[in-house]
Design a protein around this nucleic acid. Structure first.
Lengths: 336, 336
DNA sequence: CTGTTAGCGCATTCAC
DNA sequence: GTGAATGCGCTAACAG
């Protein structure tokens, strides 16, 4: 069913049908009504690709994430998709995986689909490779980077004050009488680097020993949630073995902390009695595990709503903040 | 950058450029090389919308789910997206919400984008409203329904043997000496109805009392994970209050069971000592909670891989099974 | 081996 | 108020 088919049936030209479809003026009430009925009768649905070709606007936006199975990414993608759909855009949401090459590849996919804007979720999009790819393939459309920044004219960034957040976590642990602290990360990302920096700053502030020794890496290239728990377990075992004096651990994400709690439980280590534990991201996992997890809430909902808003404003040609910073909160539960 | 721009720079016609882009034969090695260099130099990227318009194939597939935040849906969407992307299709993944009207609306979006195929995840897509919408808007493309079925020529269904699965859960509980069983569901869906039927069949098989009284509904229209736990709590409190003799509960999804475990813990009810608990879906939540959850694995990965495969085969014109049934497994953990 | 022509479905001039 | 003509970017058929 094309507008020509409808036009023929209505005994008018395609332009007239097009006018009716797009609510453009200059069509007689009678013919308008007649065309509407036919549109309805034949379940006419405009071909957005053809429409986009002539209007030079696809009404598509791209959402790129490393792995949608990661709880905080799922939530982010959901929020953004809802907002954009509400405003008449269709989202192409893709999980890119962790390598820069794959990310570049997915950026090309967005280009081929002529997306009008994009939201990239995660600090790993704030890297040189991605910057290059954006310059080459998406140089002229508004892009919002969630939890990262890139120095390009068309890229806006929303930053989460994770460094300060982690510093406050250290404060909390110290206040709880913990002075032998460790920090566990599962991957090396700009975001995690900020967190580590916050950890070290926190230690320094309280006159604790140089934190270098107390950062544990359990990196892997598998981002599946199951494996994240496993890595949390490994990191925790290493911490306990190498630094038995540790009495407070901060994990770069909740799921790592969950693995940590499991290990502590199995080894008969009381949490928070013997070791206090804090996670990051405020995911559902933290409410489910035992003991319930204290976690750094990085305000995902707020961040994503702002990301959508900024992108929409940019798409509508309004001028909108080029950067933005969101502050974290600590959700205190049983583990610390 | 269009093929005309490239053609001009190369001193050839657009067709020749098109041939090079699509690896079609009939272009001299020399010109081919020259064009390739220009394509590279200008980062040319074909406009898929224009291409799709002439080839009558968008290379887009739609994935519809009620709510991507629900753990087993996240995983499903991920698997399918990976498979389809690998094969050169771009996925439009959308969370429709629970109402039939919304679902119909999203089916229209897929139509407007001229998707070549679609995968609908969840039994709620196996309803009359959706059937009508498919007949009106997506009548001519292959559709795979995950965990549901619809009697339409273009719709293939993958069914999970949930009824039998739940019956086996009852068997397990009976074997553990539990004869006062309850079943809690959080929504009324075809899938949940099968589960309920399986529950009743199980009771009957073991000569237990009519199960009607022992099915508890905690329905709500909010599918956010947080609320699901809350509903699990409510259902459990109701069960304990109304039927204090209950010593085994099956929950229609893991997250409800998690809420149940919380309530039991708070009330000092031993699990599985006093009440044995079983969830459904084999999600990560079940590995995290305490005690670890026994759960009915409905073989999501297998189901989704088959869904992708069937859709791909249908898209390639191969004949592929119209229906398929997958059998469940019980994962025994600490809660039963 | 390569260019010309036509048309995919649509919106947008410009005539009438 | 309405229609004819044009072109968005591309591929495909045909001609040379």
């Amino acid at each position: 069913m094309t507008i020509y088919d409808i036009a023929k049936k209505a005994g008018v030209s395609a332009s007239t049908v097009s006018r009716v479809i797009n609510d453009k003026p200059g069509v007689g009430e009678a013919t308008k009504e007649r065309i509407r009925r036919l549109l309805e009768e034949y379940n006419y649905s405009p071909n957005e690709a053809a429409r986009g070709l002539v209007t030079q606007s696809s009404k598509i936006v791209g959402i790129l994430i490393e792995d949608i199975r990661i709880a905080h990414h799922t939530e982010s993608a959901y929020i953004i998709e809802q907002e954009m759909t509400k405003r008449g855009y269709t989202c192409i949401t893709l999980s890119t995986g962790i390598t820069p090459e794959k990310k570049a590849e997915y950026i090309k996919i967005l280009e081929q689909r002529r997306v009008e804007g994009a939201i990239l979720i995660g600090s790993m999009f704030g890297t040189l490779e991605v910057e290059k790819s954006i310059k080459e393939h998406l140089a002229d459309i508004p892009i919002v980077l969630v939890n990262g920044s890139l120095d390009l004219p068309n890229v806006r960034g929303i930053l989460v004050a994770e460094k300060q957040g982690v510093e406050e976590c250290v404060d909390l642990l110290v206040k709880r009488g913990r002075r032998n602290l460790a920090f566990a990360v599962d991957s090396i990302t700009p975001s995690n680097n900020s967190k580590i920096l916050g950890f070290k700053n926190g230690l320094e502030k309280h006159g604790l020993r140089n934190g270098e020794r107390f950062v544990f890496y359990a990196a892997d290239d598998d981002t599946a949630p199951e494996h994240t728990i496993e890595r949390g377990r490994q990191a925790t075992e290493e911490i306990i073995m190498k630094c038995p004096e540790v009495n407070g651990i901060i994990y770069s994400i909740d799921l790592l902390a969950v693995g940590g709690l499991q290990v502590c439980h199995e080894k008969g280590i009381a949490v928070p009695g013997q070791i206090a534990v804090i996670g990051i991201d405020n995911t559902l996992y933290g409410k489910i595990c035992t003991p319930k997890l204290t976690t750094l809430d990085n305000k995902l909902v707020e961040v994503c709503q702002n990301a959508s808003r900024i992108l929409l404003e940019a798409l509508e040609g309004k001028d909108t903040p080029h950067g933005m910073k969101i502050f974290t909160d600590i959700i205190q539960r049983e583990s610390s």
